[in-house]
Design a protein around this nucleic acid. Structure first.
Lengths: 167, 167
DNA sequence: TAAAGGTTTCAGAAATTTTTGAAATAGAAA
DNA sequence: TTTCTATTTCAAAAATTTCTGAAACCTTTA
């Protein structure tokens, strides 16, 4: 297979994967492009490579930097900005966990706490709601703690431990 | 807090959570509604409760059944169909892992395998691509194995093991 | 067999998300 | 200061996703 063809397949696949996880196709593709690039890329190179507008590139690179998946790189004597992606998959996944946990798990825990004040003795429905909320709260706190641990653990520890478990 | 208010907050929050994970708001809300309901619900009850059309309810319940998160329940002497959600959070999450793994992790592994046939000695770009693809393949297989293990493990084992790890 | 009661389908409408492109902004160099 | 190059913003357009509603399609019962 030609590398050009492989590259296109990869960009395509990564974009699709992003989409089904609530990350927009273009953001995922920009990230993919940077992951497989041997050097930092300028906005123009990304525009050219993915055939998208400057505004689109700018917004998505900004979002990727917010997620901590892409860094800015400056070159002496060049006014343009260049960008590199984090290439260590473990770090990539860790960043994603940290971000999504904060943006999604924490808000839902907050809502559950608010709701858990309901009186479950009123009727059957209130009781079912109270029980469900409590179950989810319990599960979510465990998930929260587990993810915290995963994030603190380093890559080798993680892999090693799981490999042992799987046998 | 009134249970009616709590219920609305919960449906709202669960819908939003779904959205950011690539699951449509209505599907997530139907699931939420069934999770907090003390009895099985008919299509009409869901329509009424969420104020959505019959077609929409039908399509999303079907999808939830495909995911293995909702079951059909028949009542003697009643031609209508009723639906119940799986309420054990561990089972819910397990089903989601199984489904998403198959629908998303496996296809990307397939693409990576195809691509890994490229010749990395051609140029710097091909080399970077080959390396990235290999790294991701390695990581993905580990993730795949880890998820398999998680799915096979029962809830108590999981919780117990992680609790010990966290100390 | 026909009617009644319920489910499924799907084309078009509506809502939402993403992208464009041009103008505004920023800031370095002349 | 002015010019030049690059970045950022954002309203409007385009693309995509989701929802509606009515017709088609079962199944059961009379």
């Amino acid at each position: 297979m030609e590398w050009q063809e492989g590259k296109e397949k990869f960009l395509q696949a990564w974009g699709t994967l992003g989409t089904s996880w609530g990350i927009n196709r273009t953001m995922a593709q920009i990230h993919a492009l940077m992951m497989i690039s041997p050097h930092a890329l300028s906005a123009d190179e990304v525009m050219e490579e993915l055939q998208i507008s400057r505004g689109n590139v700018n917004m998505n690179i900004r979002a990727l930097m917010d997620w901590g998946l892409v860094y800015k790189e400056l070159r002496a004597g060049d006014r343009r900005e260049y960008f590199v992606a984090e290439k260590d998959m473990w770090k990539v996944v860790r960043q994603i966990i940290v971000n999504r946990k904060k943006k999604e798990l924490e808000p839902i825990l907050k809502v559950l706490d608010e709701i858990s004040g309901i009186d479950g003795t009123v009727n059957e429905e209130a009781e079912a709601l109270a029980k469900a909320v409590n179950d989810i709260k319990l599960f979510s706190s465990k998930a929260d703690a587990t993810l915290d641990m995963l994030v603190k653990a380093d890559s080798n520890w993680f892999v090693g431990t799981f490999m042992k478990m799987i046998k």
